[in-house]
């Protein structure tokens, strides 16, 4: 890029400020909303900053409604799903980690065969994965509900893990296959000369070398499964098996739950994936760039 003129620089800084403000607008809203009481929000409907700050919204959520704190003293109603939100955080963590592990394991097995074996049917698997990425979740949900109901997999963490893994495997294949393809085949050949089996060469040589792609893919899969609403929403209706997005969804339209409490739950819900994205920035960017397109 050519050096901008001084006037151009000012314009570019202003443009950046505008974009940053837009990007941070919802983050500011959720943070400010979660740090104040229902009363302060109602008392002045025009002020940006509250006169008093409080952590009571978080206290009531994290204690499952037992420690109410000053702002919830008068409150008699707290939805069951909020009282049991600890289950939701545990379920979401277990589900996201299991799905990430299962997707990486199965995905790298398939991706390696696509990159190395080059049969017509392994190439077909790439196209199938590409097409699968387009399938609307809502189209899958109706038959999955009927099928999982029949299999007795409704209201089960395992059911959600299976459904999410199947849904995310195409992403994993599309991210991992091009990466395995880039690893020089000679490295595997050398290992085979040394007495390694084909599978051994995959496991001991190519898989460790694919670590950056596994990190990219793992980060994306974790984030998508942590954030996913429709799949657990339709497969689960008991608080014990709900994930965090499902609990958030259950609060929509509940007139007795005020925005402050909802914002606090939203903030807790977005924290893990936001931290992951910021820590693994480089890998997330790489994963997004190859997952959608190649070349």
């Amino acid at each position: 890029m050519l050096a901008p003129t001084p006037f151009g620089r000012v314009l570019l800084h202003l443009a950046n400020l505008l974009v940053i403000a837009f990007l941070l607008l919802p983050i500011a809203a959720v943070t400010l909303g979660s740090l104040q009481a229902e009363k302060t929000l109602q008392a002045d409907t025009r002020a940006l900053l509250p006169p008093e700050w409080t952590l009571d919204n978080f206290r009531v959520i994290l204690s499952g409604g037992e420690q109410r704190g000053a702002i919830f003293e008068q409150v008699t109603y707290l939805p069951d799903n909020v009282k049991k939100i600890r289950y939701a955080f545990t379920n979401s963590t277990v589900i996201a980690l299991s799905v990430t592990f299962a997707t990486l394991a199965m995905g790298s097995l398939s991706a390696w065969t696509i990159a190395r074996l080059g049969y017509r049917w392994t190439r077909w698997l790439v196209n199938a994965s590409l097409l699968a990425r387009f399938v609307p979740v809502i189209t899958l949900m109706i038959p999955l509900y009927v099928a999982f109901r029949h299999l007795g997999l409704l209201n089960s963490v395992v059911g959600v893990i299976i459904a999410l893994t199947g849904f995310l495997l195409p992403y994993a294949i599309l991210i991992l296959a091009p990466y395995f393809d880039q690893i020089p085949k000679e490295l595997e050949d050398a290992a085979r000369i040394d007495g390694c089996s084909r599978f051994g060469a995959f496991l001991r040589v190519s898989l460790p070398l694919a670590a950056p792609a596994l990190a990219s893919c793992g980060a994306l899969v974790f984030i998508i499964s942590w954030n996913e609403l429709l799949i657990p929403l339709i497969l689960v209706n008991k608080a014990e098996f709900m994930t965090v997005p499902v609990v958030i969804n259950s609060l929509v339209g509940d007139v007795h739950v005020f925005f402050n409490l909802m914002m606090a739950i939203c903030l807790l819900a977005l924290l893990p994936s936001v931290i992951l994205v910021l820590l693994l920035q480089k890998f997330v960017v790489a994963g997004l760039q190859v997952g959608g397109v190649k070349g």
Partner: peptide, 30 residues
Amino acid sequence: RIWTSRITRVLILLPYAIPPIANGLIWSFL
């Protein structure tokens, strides 16, 4: 050459991490 562009480059990733349903609820508060 624009230092604020580096900040944007980091922050642009942020929305990707937000659970869509939480995003919806945050905007309904907005």
